[in-house]
Design a protein around this nucleic acid. Structure first.
Lengths: 187, 187
DNA sequence: GGGTCTAGACTGACTGGTCAGTACAAAAAC
DNA sequence: GTTTTTGTACTGACCAGTCAGTCTAGACCC
């Protein structure tokens, strides 16, 4: 039985905080150790490499996103489901800003060793959106593309919100994004 | 239009190619020199540092995007203007895939020394979308937010297109993204 | 009780490689 | 004859990853 064993947790927390500020490359394992109040060796004792550490961080984060989308969708269909998912995703973003920033900064990278793994989990999250689209538009072959479009809209909208108008409420922002996705701008 | 000597051009091209594959951090100045068929000293003769080199690359790229949006919008208003801008942006993305990938991977970073410059130019590009929105919705205070949402939708949609269904035509993808932004999914 | 052993968590000084940036003399190019 | 380019060697900082050793708690024995 581990004595203090919040160690893993505090390393992950420290890594997230630092990486959301300085990027993964800009964060050294030494930094992480200091921030976590732990020796560098302990970081390596708990995570075999820098890559593994951040892989777990991001995979956990996107996994949580997928789970959130799943729950938000539960029992709803069509526009209702989509609205619920958009709001839930924005809520998650605002509740875990460092993680949202990190995901936004890393999700399009193609240069990480665990890139494929990350794409897989991303697809899992997108699949929730795809499923909703296919319910109402079973004949469109571009459901994945549309799901990506929606995902990008919410992600970038959410980041924009936190960065430039954090005083707005979740309700307002949610309404705004849904307005955009409901054709408010093209009508 | 400042003349760019052959050497500068080939250095920028080499840097773009390499960075879109391996990321900026994963690209060494030595790599860039070799790929450009030039001595390392020449790279430093033309660009004072690695940061400056990539700063110019990204700033030029996003500047071109802003210019493209400006032209696409020219003379049109409302939904017409927006549709034209979406298509133009997708066209730019597909025509300069390495740059699009690089921009997507770097635009949300907060850890580069020239981050502020990048944000400024990004705002300039977004301003074009904002302007269109404000024409038809002068009373909405969330034009920036909506512009970000649209930008994210097109960017992520475009990347998704190139990564997962490059066989689709620009027409199809453009139609798909506009369908999403026209409320096709929420109706 | 006291003594000994073991295992797992943790430590931090150290190593080895990488890479941005420099130096400089000589050659092209303009 | 000034600007640009070359080639190569070099420096110094930085950092991922290692490793020999410490600390602690519990187990097992007398």
């Amino acid at each position: 039985m581990p004595r203090v064993s919040g160690t893993k947790r505090s390393i992950l927390d420290a890594a997230l905080e630092l990486a959301s500020l300085n990027g993964i490359t800009g964060t050294t394992m030494e930094d992480v150790a200091v921030r976590a109040g732990v020796a560098k060796g302990s970081v390596y004792y708990n995570f075999s490499s820098k890559d593994k550490l951040f892989e777990q961080l991001l995979l956990d984060g996107i996994g949580a996103l997928a789970e959130t989308l799943r729950q938000a969708r539960d029992g709803k269909t069509g526009g209702q489901a989509l609205a619920s998912m958009v709001t839930a995703m924005l809520e998650l973003i605002s509740g875990n800003q460092p993680l949202a920033k990190l995901i936004a900064a890393e999700i399009f990278r193609t240069d990480r060793s665990w890139q494929t793994h990350l794409q897989t989990v991303r697809q899992e999250a997108l699949a929730e959106i795809v499923a909703v689209i296919q319910e109402t538009h079973p004949d469109r072959p571009d459901a994945e593309l549309m799901a990506g479009t929606v995902f990008g809209a919410v992600l970038v909208g959410g980041i924009e919100w936190l960065a430039f108008s954090p005083e707005r409420s979740l309700q307002e922002v949610s309404e705004s994004v849904l307005f955009t996705l409901s054709g408010g701008l093209t009508a």
